[in-house]
Simulated assay, not measured.
Amino acid sequence: MRPYIICHMMASLDGRIDCEMTEQIDDTNLYYEALAQLGCPSTLEGKTTLAMHYAQTGEFQQQRPHEDAGQQLYKAVEAASYAIGVDTRGTLLWDDNTTEIFGRPLLMILSEQASQEYLDYLKSKHISYITTGCNGIDLPSAMETLRAVFSIERLAVVGGGNINGSMLDLDLIDEVSMMYGYGIDGRGGMAAAFDGRPMDRKPVRLTFKSVEEQDGIVWMRYQVVNS
């Protein structure tokens, strides 16, 4: 069993989700107020978002020969909620107190190809981790571990487009919560709310749940019709 998963995003009217751009549309207070209403104290973000806003500059440099970590689990602390990140091979660098940065403990999901040395590094920073999947991260397995070991029952996926698209492809998104600001991006190459799905994929069906408008921001919620 996995958590109930909601993808919650703020986008321009053309569906782009670059944070620096959407912050120019709105101060994002409404976004976080809506997130609180969704009842998902734990959130998940992709590597690009983490590198842009939270991690230190640069990448982890190995000092020892690479040794695949294999399937592992480390729970640094028991908590009511976690900030969850995805870093397939383990390259992000972190401050000593990530709990202060995120406002709750950090939990990283990696593939089994991440190095043992990098896991030792995370442990030295008191960062929890899950490694699963030989060829990339096994996201369904990771979601089950979040529920079984970390007691996460509701999870909000809050960026970016590629992790959203991957989880949608794997039928891991139960609900889509989209907030559209009063602006258009239009820049070439910018990520959409859901991105990177293979060209042979069919559109994902949704059923309407609700719509609200506040101060020019439109908030729409849809249930995903999983196959």
Rank of each mutant, 00 (worst) to 15 (best):
C19T: 07
C19S: 15
C19P: 08
E20P: 07
E20C: 07
E20S: 08
E20M: 12
E20W: 07
M21W: 12
M21K: 06
M21G: 04
T22V: 14
T22W: 06
E23T: 14
E23D: 15
Q24W: 07
Q24E: 11
I25R: 01
I25G: 01
I25A: 09
I25W: 01
D26I: 09
D26P: 06
D27Y: 09
T28A: 08
T28D: 04
T28Q: 11
T28F: 09
T28Y: 14
N29K: 15
N29P: 15
L30W: 10
L30D: 09
L30N: 12
L30Y: 14
Y31V: 00
Y31L: 00
Y31Q: 00
Y31K: 02
Y31T: 04
Y32P: 07
Y32C: 03
Y32S: 05
Y32E: 07
Y32D: 01
E33M: 15
E33P: 15
A34P: 04
A34W: 10
L35V: 13
L35H: 14
Q37R: 15
Q37D: 14
Q37N: 14
Q37C: 15
L38S: 14
L38N: 10
G39E: 00
G39H: 04
G39I: 03
C40V: 14
C40N: 07
C40I: 06
C40S: 10
C40M: 10
C40R: 12
P41H: 11
P41I: 10
P41T: 11
P41R: 10
P41N: 06
P41D: 08
S42F: 10
S42V: 09
T43G: 02
T43A: 07
T43L: 00
T43N: 03
T43P: 01
L44N: 04
L44V: 04
L44S: 09
E45N: 00
E45G: 02
E45I: 06
G46V: 00
G46R: 02
G46A: 07
G46N: 06
K47P: 00
T48C: 11
T48L: 11
T48Y: 10
T48N: 11
T49P: 05
T49I: 13
T49S: 06
T49E: 07
T49V: 11
L50D: 02
L50T: 06
L50W: 07
L50F: 04
L50K: 01
A51C: 01
A51Y: 06
M52T: 12
M52L: 06
H53K: 08
H53T: 11
H53A: 09
H53C: 03
Y54N: 01
Y54R: 00
A55D: 10
Q56D: 14
Q56Y: 11
Q56S: 11
Q56H: 09
Q56T: 12
T57P: 02
T57V: 11
T57Y: 09
T57H: 08
G58K: 04
G58M: 06
G58W: 09
G58V: 08
G58A: 03
E59W: 08
F60N: 12
Q61Y: 01
Q61C: 02
Q61K: 03
Q62N: 05
Q62K: 03
Q63S: 10
R64M: 08
R64Y: 03
R64K: 03
R64S: 04
